[in-house]
Design a binder for these strands. Structure first.
Lengths: 341, 341
DNA sequence: CCGTTTCTGATGTACGTAAATCAAAAATTT
DNA sequence: AAATTTTTGATTTACGTACATCAGAAACGG
């Protein structure tokens, strides 16, 4: 049987009350006694029964998710995953609030973050726009001992506790290698399509992509990045224009959202133009396009995993518990038409 | 606040004891009363607090993992993941026992399964060898109301509750497309290397691989399958022989374990022979080979996820609870040298 | 209407921890 | 050594559920 507080008390030769004071860092214990108890805890290998503790505490975790508004499927999916999590709230002792802010809007994000100051919040998860003001606002929350997790896109040099998202440099590198090898030594131009260089995930994907292209596929030339702001309509017109103006384009890497527009533009020039296309985020649209051959590979991050992981990490951090790093690593999914879920 | 048994009692106008009898299907409740209580439960949306219930019950889940012995890294890793799970046993109220049986040995597996009959076991996870005798033994356990989960390799037509592993047909198809596209329209022979056609996962991978090759890459010819029995030394000699006898081999798909031997054979013919190679299972050896360019892609299943998922499913099944299908789907990881974890 | 069976209520204990109270002991200061 | 402060012990209640016991009520058979 697993040891309990009673066993510690017996082992340390103190009372239950004292053990409780040590375990919950309450005042009123002499240093020597505290050390005696801590030694006993280590000796007999006590681990707190979190379930029992939460039961006794009647603990609930009020969590806040700050997600961008926006018409694209990925953010839609993300919001829907957070919503799903609210439905499981009862079972998990969480109380999740969703705050929506306009995409790429630094001051709105900062306002949302600052609005949480002083509120009863056990953790905050946000899709970060990578700006100094946001970093400062996050750091303010952290200094108030509120667990903060960045979701999908990370924040440079901030003190956030955790990042629940993929390694975007690796994602960009992977996209480059896939595109490069699929093109099999051909020569031509490549178009890169991004949402906004304001978010770190997009910058990093481009960085990884460019690096591998330069190192290993010198025959492929990168054209200037098109910024579609994750908006389908804008994306569509940018791509159409680029394709009609440059007949040497043989490949496209779309590293942001809004792929509905890209796919529409591609369909408009098919089957005359033969293009190898790698995009991010598996949605209804990209899935269909992958199956019908309009695109060749989809890189994906599982929003459901990211949300669940963020919740686990916020709870663990709030309790001062360690997280199982391996379990919280968000993986880059590569989908070809054969391994769709 | 979440409703409790007290709330049901009040709502249904009965006593706590009666609610308890209904909830835990104990006898001594008239049908009308039972229905009244069940209605109240639905009305106020009661959900049992599993943590509190387990606490009260002092429940522990004695689980058994049956895994093959064998020298290869994958099974090593799997056993080590199960072992890790035993370390978390205290926190998760599990009591995990590991039973090792010789690989591909049907009667040993059956004996191990039958040995569990009548024992106090809350769940069994096994790496199945796909034979009728094994299926029968599994069905015997299932009919004794013991949750059974197949791990890594599934069992045809059995009544097992769950399969914690990847879709191997999809894996084979994915390997074929990667290999086919990486070879970029070239013509030549392909060698397929398997462990044993006795296990369903290997058969299915081959099936998926052959299908896509036939459909989409007619210029690539499949040579007869080499069976390495997941043994590094045997694999090495098979591959060396094949490569020296046939100079038209331009690609290799290794769908089993024992890749240490394959890699050794490849290094022996490099850099003269240019080969595109896709293998299964990320291990220390395949990782190194991927980085140094000896192999081009690794398909992987995360043994840690599989083990953790199997545990969750066995517990949930033992409690008659539903599993979150989406969370338990084991994904096929595709690793290129750029997205290694 | 009585006796018997079947159902229901009331109550208590337990699980492992948290948190509070009050008394007693020990340490510290004066 | 007395007064004061700090530390410790003992005890109780609570969290939500499980499970057992016993008494009482309702239903049923004759």
């Amino acid at each position: 049987m697993r040891p309990t507080v009673h066993d510690i008390a017996a082992a340390a030769g103190v009372s239950l009350a004292t053990v409780d004071r040590v375990l919950n860092q309450r005042p009123g214990v002499r240093l020597v006694t505290r050390e005696k108890v801590e030694e006993a805890i280590r000796q007999i290998g006590y681990i707190r029964d979190v379930a029992a503790a939460n039961l006794a505490k009647g603990r609930v975790y009020p969590l806040v998710f700050i997600v961008p508004t926006g018409d694209n499927s990925f953010m839609h999916g993300l919001r829907s995953e957070v919503h799903h999590a609210t439905l499981r709230a009862g079972m998990e002792r969480t109380d999740i609030r969703i705050v929506e802010v306009p995409a790429f809007d630094v001051s709105a994000l900062v306002a949302a973050l600052d609005g949480l100051q002083g509120q009863d919040v056990a953790g905050v998860a946000l899709v970060a726009t990578d700006a100094p003001e946001v970093r400062a606002a996050v750091d303010r929350l952290v200094s108030e001992r509120i667990p903060v997790v960045t979701l999908v896109s990370d924040l440079t040099d901030s003190t956030r506790h955790h990042y629940a998202g993929i390694d975007n440099i690796a994602a960009g590198r992977t996209a480059a290698r896939l595109l490069g090898r699929f093109l099999g030594g051909r020569e031509g131009d490549l178009t890169v399509l991004a949402g906004s260089m304001l978010v770190r995930d997009h910058r990093e994907r481009l960085q990884g992509f460019s690096a591998v292209m330069a190192e290993e596929f010198p025959k492929l030339r990168l054209l200037p990045v098109l910024e579609g702001r994750d908006d389908p309509e804008r994306t569509r017109s940018l791509v159409s224009k680029a394709l009609s103006e440059n007949k040497d384009i043989i490949g496209i890497y779309s590293l942001g959202a809004g792929n509905r527009g890209l796919i529409a533009a591609l369909k408009a020039v098919r089957p005359e133009r033969e293009l190898t296309v790698v995009v991010h985020e598996l949605t209804q649209h990209t899935r269909t396009a992958l199956v019908d051959g309009t695109i060749d590979a989809v890189l994906n991050q599982d929003a459901g995993h990211e949300v669940r992981s963020a919740i686990r990490v916020m709870k663990a951090t709030a309790d001062g518990q360690a997280v199982i790093a391996d379990q919280e690593r968000i993986r880059l999914d590569i989908f070809l038409k054969d391994n769709l879920p």
